[in-house]
Simulated scan of single mutants.
Amino acid sequence: MLKDKLKGYKIILASGSPRRQQFFKDLDLDFEIRLKDIEEIYPDDLQGVEITKYLAQLKANAFEGEIAANELLVTSDTIVWLNNKALGKPKDYDDAFAILKSLSNETHEVITSVCFKTITKTETIFDVTKVTFNKLTDEAIRYYLDNYKPFDKAGAYGIQEWIGLVGITRIDGSYTNVVGLPTEKVYHYLSNCYRKE
């Protein structure tokens, strides 16, 4: 199993996301959480997956010089991409309302990049999932924001929450990617790239 293949490594998950932490537990991995406060700013000319790759690597590079020989650091970043514009975490209630209004009756992409860093190499993988919402009424949006407060989520929604149950009509690609981590790709990558020689 994956845990056995990685037993030579100490996995460091640099994410405060409870969803990503739960996925690592669900993958039956032993890991330690290490957090740094990173200002998530990226160059204006980056598009789509370039943004998440840049930010995932930015988060990993913040640990430069702090990774031990047996440690494997994992960082990630997720955005919602709609009409050539990145939608990150909402600034406040009004911003969250505007974001969900823009996603109503539209198809958007959820893009996640995951960066793996050791003292000898840094590699990044990514996944893209298309998500389609039906028409969301103002009342439904307010109900969701008032009761679920999704202000820590890219695109101001969690697919696993009420809004996903009542509002999403179609998903093309990885469901877990929309929640916050493309678990199948992460599992496959770790299985093949970090076996102890």
Rank of each mutant, 00 (worst) to 15 (best):
S174C: 11
I163N: 15
G167P: 03
N177S: 15
D152V: 09
R142N: 01
Y143F: 15
I171G: 05
P150C: 08
A140I: 07
T169S: 11
S174E: 07
V166S: 05
N177Y: 15
I168K: 03
A154L: 07
Y175G: 00
G155E: 04
I171F: 13
D146L: 10
I171R: 09
Y175K: 04
G155Y: 12
G167Y: 07
Y148H: 15
A154N: 08
N177W: 10
L165Y: 14
P150K: 13
G167H: 11
D152S: 07
I168M: 04
G155A: 11
R142I: 02
A140Q: 03
T169V: 09
I168W: 09
Y157A: 09
G155I: 12
P150T: 11
Q160K: 00
D152Y: 02
D172W: 00
I159T: 04
Y157T: 11
D152N: 05
Y175Q: 03
Q160V: 04
E161M: 02
Y148F: 15
I171S: 13
L145S: 01
V178A: 10
I168D: 11
E161P: 08
S174P: 14
G155S: 12
E161C: 10
S174Y: 13
G158H: 13
Y148E: 09
Y143C: 05
G158Q: 05
K149Y: 02
P150S: 03
I163K: 10
D172C: 05
D172I: 03
L165F: 14
Y143N: 12
D146A: 13
K149N: 10
S174D: 14
I168C: 15
F151K: 06
Y144P: 03
Y157P: 06
A140S: 09
Y175L: 08
A154M: 12
R142V: 06
I141Y: 03
V178W: 01
E161L: 01
T176A: 00
N147D: 10
T176S: 12
L145G: 10
I171H: 12
Y143K: 11
Q160C: 00
G164F: 10
L145E: 06
R142L: 11
V166E: 13
D172Y: 06
L165T: 13
Y148P: 15
Q160T: 12
T176N: 02
I159Q: 01
G155P: 07
D146K: 11
I141F: 10
I171L: 15
D172V: 08
A154D: 04
I163Q: 08
R170G: 00
A154Q: 09
W162M: 04
E161V: 11
A154R: 05
L145Q: 06
I163S: 12
I163V: 10
Y148Q: 07
Y144W: 10
D152L: 13
Y144S: 04
A140C: 04
K149G: 04
Q160F: 07
I141M: 13
N177G: 08
R170F: 08
I171K: 07
D152W: 04
P150H: 01
F151A: 02
S174R: 12
L145T: 05
G173P: 14
